[in-house]
């Protein structure tokens, strides 16, 4: 299949970028990233700068790949990351516009690569459980109800790719932070530090310059892992509760 690509090219974070048009011959069994690999091979053999894009596991679980494909983060296929999107979902001769995730807190570093370290700093602020390392505990030593474990797992499915920010007209990171706060707050291991965690993570999220939720729910619709906006409500509850009841003045 022949495809016309319009790809965002930007030399570095300081200069302005622009779209460049390319033609690529792909196979419908290729993943979207493999199609870009083909493009890059032809660019390299033609002594041209290949398109920079992020990828790692290519199994849909690491959250590294991103890209806004024809206006949608991770492209047109529901509940799928870019690496798991296959070319059979496109038509022969189709024009595909490929852009980086756009948000002030996700500055473009080069071409389609954006700096998502704001997410790392939010996690560093409180997205963890402090435990003494030692022997691995036996399974089921802490009984957790199936329904609670299920809810926590659904929130924990967040791979931190940032599609929620990319999809949100306010560039809000509340689905990401909501998922991270929820998955730990729901479990007894995370509950101990829940108040501090909610306050620190929300504070860091605000510091990074992400927008505020207008309950548009585009984040949920575009999330490759189907994270629910119920997690945003839980974050709101956790944060409001923590602010009024924590010992810190």
């Amino acid at each position: 299949m022949k495809l016309n690509l319009k790809v965002w090219r930007q030399k570095n974070a300081k200069v302005k970028g622009q779209f460049e048009s390319y033609q690529v011959v792909a196979n419908e069994h290729m993943s979207f990233l493999e199609m870009l690999d083909v493009l890059n091979e032809s660019l390299v053999s033609g002594q041209k700068e290949p398109v920079a894009f992020e990828h790692d596991c290519r199994e849909g679980i690491c959250g590294t790949c991103n890209l806004v494909i024809n206006g949608q983060p991770h492209g047109p296929q529901n509940g799928t990351t870019t690496c798991q999107l296959h070319m059979r979902h496109f038509k022969d001769g189709q024009t595909i516009v490929i852009e980086p995730f756009r948000a002030k807190a996700f500055p473009v570093l080069k071409d389609l690569v954006v700096d998502r370290s704001a997410f790392d700093r939010i996690i560093q602020a409180g997205g963890y459980v402090s435990v003494d390392t030692g022997q691995a505990p036996d399974g089921n030593t802490i009984p957790i109800g199936k329904d609670v474990a299920g809810q926590a797992f659904e929130a924990a499915a967040c791979i931190g790719c940032g599609a929620c920010v990319a999809a949100c007209p306010n560039s809000s990171a509340m689905l990401f932070v909501g998922a991270k706060i929820s998955h730990l707050a729901l479990l007894p291991q995370g509950e101990v530090e829940a108040k501090k965690r909610a306050q620190k993570m929300v504070h860091q999220m605000d510091e990074e310059g992400f927008g505020m939720c207008s309950n548009i729910t585009a984040c949920e619709a575009e999330c490759p892992k189907g994270i629910s906006v119920e997690n945003i409500a839980r974050m709101n509850r956790e944060y409001i509760g923590a602010s009024f009841t924590s010992q810190d003045k």
Partner: peptide, 13 residues
């Protein structure tokens, strides 16, 4: 928060 550069194409489910 959106920054200065917007999307050329937007589509939402």
């Amino acid at each position: 928060a959106r920054g200065t550069q917007g999307y050329a194409v937007t589509k939402t489910r």
